Simulated scan of single mutants.
Amino acid sequence: MEPRDTHVLELRGEALGTITSQSSMEETFQNQTLRPILKMQNDLFVQVFINYAVKQKNVFFSLTPEKKMAYIENVIQRDIKFRNALKGMIIALFTLDEYAEYIQNSSNLNKRMMNMLIERLKSQVLLIVE
């Protein structure tokens, strides 16, 4: 294994979630790779989102909690540049083998990754303040 891969795996920690022999490739990748990365990068994702919201004229901060939830989802689904930046923060922490696995099924894994990130940000909406 490449030294970079070893360091990345040590930094991320253990898989999160249950992986069984019946787990699909996507589910295994999600629990072994995506969940630990999202957990590790959580504080960065929150700060990046706050910065995004500030640059968008602070509209987010005056919304009701329900509308904040919709805003988070809408922004990540529709702002391609922002979405790609978030995706890059996740992919940057893949090992070479994980990246090879990712490119085989990137469309479905991108959906999983963004849905997990949306849910993570929504669950912390009360922490997201200007």
Rank of each mutant, 00 (worst) to 15 (best):
N51K: 14
F45Q: 02
I103A: 03
R4G: 01
S21E: 12
F82A: 06
K39Q: 12
M114F: 13
Q41H: 06
P36Y: 00
K39D: 07
K55V: 03
P3H: 10
M40S: 08
S24I: 02
M1Q: 10
V75M: 13
V75N: 11
S62R: 15
L44G: 01
S123W: 04
V75C: 13
M1K: 13
F82W: 10
L9H: 03
Q104I: 05
T28C: 04
I76E: 06
S107C: 02
A53T: 07
E119C: 02
L34T: 00
M1R: 11
N51C: 09
E26H: 07
S23E: 01
M25Y: 06
Y102L: 05
K39G: 01
K111G: 05
M89K: 00
K39W: 04
M114Q: 06
T20A: 08
I128Y: 09
I76W: 12
I90V: 15
F60S: 09
S24Q: 02
P3Q: 10
E26C: 03
N58L: 13
V48A: 07
N110S: 11
Y52Q: 12
R12N: 10
L109T: 03
L121S: 03
H7V: 09
D79H: 13
D97P: 04
M89E: 01
M40F: 12
Q30K: 07
I50P: 09
F49Y: 13
R12D: 00
L109E: 04
S123P: 02
M25L: 09
Q47R: 14
A53H: 11
G17R: 08
L127W: 07
L63W: 11
F61M: 11
R120P: 00
V129K: 15
N108G: 02
Y99C: 01
E73M: 08
L11V: 03
T18F: 09
R112G: 07
L63I: 12
V48G: 01
K68I: 07
L16P: 00
K111V: 10
R12M: 15
F29I: 01
T28Q: 07
S24V: 02
Q56D: 12
N108A: 14
T6C: 04
K67S: 12
V75I: 15
N74Q: 15
E119W: 02
F60R: 09
N105M: 12
H7R: 10
V125N: 08
N110P: 03
E101L: 13
E66D: 15
Y99W: 11
A85I: 10
S107W: 02
L16D: 03
D43T: 09
A53M: 11
V75A: 15
I80A: 13
F45P: 04
Y52P: 06
V125W: 03
F49E: 05
L86I: 13
M116Q: 12
